[in-house]
Design a protein around this nucleic acid. Structure first.
Lengths: 189, 189
DNA sequence: CCTTTAAAAGTGAACGCTCATTCACTTTTA
DNA sequence: TAAAAGTGAATGAGCGTTCACTTTTAAAGG
């Protein structure tokens, strides 16, 4: 049991190290020896937990995006009105960008770079299904513009990865509210 | 004269090869030997035109962004009303994304990846100064929301790199107009 | 409770490969 | 004909990955 926990911790440390190194200098800077050193293990140990480097990066991507989705829909209640729901999800995602800074910029890097293999559904919105459904409901209710979810995403969620970045100054509540209003105005009817 | 032209052509071919390779598989896939082969020169020849790989990538970035700025403000007339000017610039940028597909996705990659050295002004809007000035004028006229240029950019220009991508289906005029309307609605008062 | 023991986990050094860069040399230019 | 441009092969560093080996683990036996 303690043994299992140690194993999990080591795996987590390896993922964390990879995350940090990729954020600092891209994939080529995250070499196996550095990842190993940062996680206080031998390079060979990495191969007990991951098939190879690509597998390491893929798993990091999958788990990071899973964390993203979970945060996005934390406490989401479908019975609320469209705008209120949208606001809740939008702020959840903002919270993710702010609290999990490294994870967020890693995901942003994956979106515009061939780091991760999964090309097929890289650009679809599968991981945001409940949000897409919410938009469709909003469209049926005549609240939201009749444009593709793709566009709705581009003008509400996508900008956050630009706006909420670490090199940014402190993010005031006013700033966040202004950003949310811009997002809502972009897609409301 | 013919000699000078040949020199320029060779340099251009090298930049073009680098662009293509980086887009295909990231910086690590754009190795000097491949760049050389694709441009029909010897690897050693690259070093007649560029100091090293980083210099090659930096120059590619600078010149690509220069092309971007020039396209953005092509035929820009400051005396026109704010919305009309904004529309013209927005469509210019859309044209850039569509016509110079490779250049556009390279720039997008640079924005979220530590490919290029120039960290200082990576995230500022220096290369879009006339647009920022236009926004300020719009704010004075009470047409545009009183929020930072940073945010205005995030909700009007930044989304385009997501929306207008090569793996996207054909871009109809209607689609483009819908995207523009979303952008304008996001920032108009 | 302590010792045994075999499997599991972990290791540092080494291998083979690829890459950026250089160099001695050849070709082109005017 | 000498300077400029271009070259293919060589160099050395760094990478991902493997391997022979050591250490740790925890259940079994006394």
């Amino acid at each position: 049991m303690a043994r299992l926990q140690k194993s999990i911790d080591k795996r987590t440390a390896l993922l964390k190290s990879t995350l940090g190194l990729i954020n600092e200098g891209g994939v080529q800077q995250a070499c196996m020896s550095k990842v190993a050193k940062m996680a206080n293990v031998s390079p060979a140990t990495i191969y007990l937990y991951f098939e190879n480097k690509q597998d390491l990066v893929n798993q990091l991507f999958n788990e990071t995006r899973e964390l993203f989705s979970q945060t996005a829909f934390k406490g989401y209640d479908q019975s609320m009105p469209v705008k209120k729901s949208f606001r809740a999800i939008w702020y959840n995602i903002a919270e993710f960008r702010l609290k999990h800074n490294e994870e967020a910029s890693f995901l942003a890097q994956c979106e515009s770079t061939p780091i991760v293999e999964e090309d097929r559904c890289k650009k679809d919105l599968h991981h945001l299904k409940p949000l897409v459904d919410l938009w469709l409901r909003g469209q049926r209710e005549g609240i939201i513009k009749e444009i593709e979810p793709y566009l709705l995403y581009a003008y509400t969620i996508y900008p956050m990865s630009f706006v909420l970045n670490k090199e940014n100054r402190k993010v005031e509540p006013d700033f966040l509210e202004a950003a949310f209003n811009a997002a809502w105005d972009a897609i409301k009817r």
